[in-house]
């Protein structure tokens, strides 16, 4: 099941140097929403930009029939989104893709977000809290100004630690470095992550060293969003996670839009 049609923008506010938070009233879509799924938005009513933009669900209010989207202005499409006002109609498809699943038996989760990758982690953090799973959230950003959502996460009562590339806030360095420091003490038994590929790649390698399994949410240039065009693919290990080098042909391309965007961390092969 998936909705395609118009929602109504009820809020669109600047929340960071390049970041906006939009809330959309679209009850038919909201009722199908789950953490980790995304919506595919037509930003222009004209022909440029032509393609829709996939934006992950940042907040879901089943009662009010609204979803919220936390996005960073990175190009023409997202700039057009940022210019929308309350009352405007917005053309959306969704929710699309497979979201996060919370495995049975986990007690302590490590949640890691890098850059705008924090966006889909909020509804996940709420779900984890709902199930009574203890969690440590690590956020990585370029600098203090680019740290988004710390207060909101803390207000949910979860532990948040920050890493900034320039050291202007919290740990100085990449969030993977912070994770390396945190894991031995926090002793998580599972992890969830979303962020740029180098971060995910580092984190997958790090967590493997600790024997920790988890899920990652991927991002890729996308066409249709429904699994038809095969544009947004990622390399996936074949044969149930066995170690085969990609050069030996031990991978297949899976669709980020419909097989993901959330994958088991052990399945994905991220190139440099």
């Amino acid at each position: 099941m998936s909705f395609s049609g118009l929602g109504e923008v009820v809020m669109n506010t600047k929340v960071g140097p390049e970041h906006f938070l939009m809330r959309v009233y679209v009850p038919q879509l909201t009722k199908l929403a789950k953490p980790g799924r995304f919506v595919h938005i037509r930003c222009s009513s004209g022909m440029d930009p032509l393609l829709r933009r996939p934006i992950s669900l940042h907040g879901i209010d089943y009662g009010k029939g609204t979803i919220s989207l936390l996005y960073q202005v990175v190009g023409t499409g997202t700039r057009m989104l940022a210019e929308m006002s309350p009352g405007d109609g917005i053309d959306l498809m969704g929710p699309l893709g497979n979201g996060f699943t919370i495995p049975d038996g986990i007690n302590k989760a490590l949640v890691v977000g890098g850059g705008i990758g924090v966006a889909p982690l909020f509804p996940l953090v709420q779900s984890l809290k709902h199930y009574g799973i203890e969690q440590t959230v690590l956020l990585g950003a370029r600098s203090a100004a680019f740290v988004i959502g710390r207060e909101q996460l803390e207000s949910l009562g979860v532990k948040v630690k920050i890493a900034t590339d320039d050291g202007s806030f919290g740990y100085q360095g990449f969030v993977t470095g912070l994770a390396e420091d945190v894991i031995p003490a926090a002793k998580p038994d599972y992890f969830f992550a979303c962020g740029p590929y180098p971060m995910l790649k580092g984190l997958i390698s790090l967590t493997k060293g600790f024997g920790l399994s988890g899920q990652v949410s991927l991002e890729e240039y996308m066409g249709c969003g429904v699994g038809a065009c095969l544009a947004c693919v990622c390399k996936n290990r074949t044969g149930g996670g066995t170690e085969q080098p990609a050069s030996a042909g031990g991978f297949e391309y899976k669709k980020v839009c419909t097989d993901g965007p959330v994958f088991e961390a052990s399945e994905v092969i991220l190139d440099d």
Binding site: M47, D48, P49, L50, L51, E220, Y221, M222, G223, C229, L230, A231, C232, V233, C234, G249, F251, E252, Y253, D271
Partner: peptide, 15 residues
């Protein structure tokens, strides 16, 4: 298997 990514790029009124 198909080609490596990126497999799609937007151009003015096209892809």
């Amino acid at each position: 298997k198909g080609n490596p990514t990126p497999r799609i790029a937007e151009t003015p009124a096209g892809i």
